[in-house]
Design a protein around this nucleic acid. Sequence first.
DNA 1: CCATAGGTCGCATAGCTATTCAATTTTTTC
DNA 2: GAAAAAATTGAATAGCTATGCGACCTATGG
Lengths: 339, 339
Amino acid sequence: MDARRRPGRVTSFDVAERAGVSQPTVSRALSGSSMISEGTRDKVLVAAKELGYFVDERAARLRKGHTGTLATVVICKPGGGARDVNPFSYALLGGICAAAAEQDLEVLVSLQSEDDKLFGHFVERGQAEGLIVIGTTANRTAWDYFRKVGETSEPVAYWGSPLGDLDWVSSDNEAGAQLAADHLVERGCKELVVVGSRTNIQRQFSERVDAFLARAKERGVSARLVEIEPGGARREQGTLATEALLAQDKGFDGIFAVCDALAFGVIDALQSAGRSIPDDVKLVGFDGVPASEMTNPPLTTVEPDLDQAGRLLVEAVTGEGEHPSVRRVPVALTVRGSS
Amino acid sequence: MDARRRPGRVTSFDVAERAGVSQPTVSRALSGSSMISEGTRDKVLVAAKELGYFVDERAARLRKGHTGTLATVVICKPGGGARDVNPFSYALLGGICAAAAEQDLEVLVSLQSEDDKLFGHFVERGQAEGLIVIGTTANRTAWDYFRKVGETSEPVAYWGSPLGDLDWVSSDNEAGAQLAADHLVERGCKELVVVGSRTNIQRQFSERVDAFLARAKERGVSARLVEIEPGGARREQGTLATEALLAQDKGFDGIFAVCDALAFGVIDALQSAGRSIPDDVKLVGFDGVPASEMTNPPLTTVEPDLDQAGRLLVEAVTGEGEHPSVRRVPVALTVRGSS
DNA sequence: CCATAGGTCGCATAGCTATTCAATTTTTTC
DNA sequence: GAAAAAATTGAATAGCTATGCGACCTATGG
């Protein structure tokens, strides 16, 4: 049953002995070196299989001087449990895993509370080729840390729009916001509102806000911004912002929420106030999280291509093609009942 | 700017030289060995800091003979993109990350398509202390592979109920199903239905089904099973099962869906048929995925404690406390509008 | 038949750390 | 003050692989 011969690991020497060759030959045969004859390679392969041998990656990496690993930090809210991470972050993580697998890289994941003192302690130990940061935070210490890592240890890239001098990859926020604006205009909206913010921390949000307002203007439709409280983007903030909006005496018939989580809060507030979606107000979100399908009515939303996002992030960090010129991930509008 | 001295890595020898001690002393000083005097330790610490030294974990692990790493495989649907992973799996992954961090373990994540030929190629290379499997699959090859890994390389544990001889951790399905049954009965339901399956692959589902039916019987309320098509648990299958249910001429006023994804489909079908939730039919799901908050009405659901789940899975694999006696994760009923 | 090139393979070593064991210094004890 | 014990430290090595380089053999060309 438990045949784990942990201490007595099978090494390349064992394989070499069995195959009647030297250890270096085993190494070369298994790594596909062209310097090895077919006959020898077969012998080695057979012996390796018989012994159940696998390369010890620790040693291989030590020798080769690299890690074959990518570190990913998912920033989460302080004190939050496993359920308290933005579903979008998880989905993006999925995209990263897929892209990394394509390049034969492994992915190390670390959930880091926003206020964690030991920010990313593991990353700097030469365990990863690079670091990818997902999730936003206002914690300066965290960003300083990432910057330091980027300068002294390994490449760092984050999901978000330009901020400081770290490498970044983000949604094509301009295109997404334009899609949203065009869509609402085409659905006949005359008075648009964007629920979001312009703080520096959520640069993606401010990009969406600006592009939306600009496009509405282009189309000759009035549009204004309702600011959420800064810091994170949670459902409650969407509710609060919408309540403030309802308290104004200016009318509105179309809302663009800069992320789905906010849109959920908008729905809550609108429905509490007896406004019908989409009859009275049409609504568009951003992100395409799974829950957007489940709202009533289902949420029209701008979905970034996450597989593409993962690929760009991985490339940004591994340096494939050096600083990629394309850092904006294409988006698509998924039209559902809310508009 | 780019001061990465990649090739010329700072080693413990460099620190030793600067501190005027030997390399072993550096190693011991940094690992907190009690064999080192305070004065020496301070010198070493200072030198290490000045040089920006960090232990090369590759070498340390090679020497120590372990990895400090946990591998996690998330099984996903074939051909699915990043968005196509069960949100519950991601949430559970979060719980695992948190638990692993507590034990100073790193977490390697790999998304594996159900039909992947190269199942988990990385795991067996001695890169991890153990392997955790999330997500269900009918793919025998995959399970054979996991079993083989468990027997020959490293401990394997999976999220699910007993099946074969792998270690497992699951929800307390019996308690959860009882909570659901009790709740529906207390809400006045007289004719219960459970939407789920009894296939061997989704053992958790069959446990929930059985416990629900048993509890309903105990409470003197009729209950019957409507089987979904085997293989995965997706929204559409909930819809199909509910349509079949509606086509029967037997009545029902309470439904327990063995997972939230199915419950979502149940909602679709009921509302299409003009049945009101919760007036005509009360509904309870299982899992507590984020989207369950967003349905209309919001879904009452049984939520397993995922932090606990992560902890148990990690313990099962690291052998802390040897085969843990508690493998059932406590659940709680979150009551919302659907009941 | 010899010189040469090309194809294979093994020897020795590097990569960085943690640990065993012996050596040295310091402290304690009588 | 000497002997024993304790506290520190260093020298040497193991852990496993990949690779530079030299050695060997075979086929090729003259």
